[in-house]
Computed example of a mutant assay.
Amino acid sequence: MSVTEVSLSMNVVDTAVPRWVAQSDGERAGGSGEGEPLTAEKQRIRQLEAENRQLRETTRR
């Protein structure tokens, strides 16, 4: 499906979907994505996840 088709099916403006994708990609990469973390807890979870990834990479070497 195209961005336009997805947007129409969800009844949202066509700029919303690319923003959501960018946000998701940023979060999956360990960052905060496009926006700021919503809570201190969410920020701490992201920090711990990044530390876990770093530790896993270190132990693989």
Rank of each mutant, 00 (worst) to 15 (best):
M1C: 02
M1W: 09
S2K: 12
V3W: 00
T4E: 06
T4H: 13
E5R: 12
L8I: 06
N11L: 11
N11A: 11
V13R: 00
V13L: 07
V13P: 02
D14P: 09
T15C: 09
A16Y: 09
A16C: 12
A16S: 11
V17W: 08
V17L: 14
W20T: 02
V21P: 01
A22K: 06
Q23C: 00
Q23P: 13
S24Q: 03
D25G: 05
E27W: 00
A29E: 14
G31I: 08
G31K: 07
G31C: 11
S32W: 01
E34S: 11
G35N: 15
G35Q: 15
P37W: 02
L38T: 09
T39H: 06
T39D: 06
A40K: 13
A40I: 12
E41Y: 06
K42H: 02
K42N: 05
Q43A: 03
Q43F: 00
Q43H: 04
R44E: 14
Q47I: 00
Q47W: 04
E49L: 05
A50M: 06
A50S: 11
E51F: 12
E51L: 15
N52V: 10
N52E: 07
R53S: 07
Q54P: 01
Q54W: 09
R56Y: 05
E57M: 04
T58G: 01
T58Q: 14
T58K: 10
R60C: 08
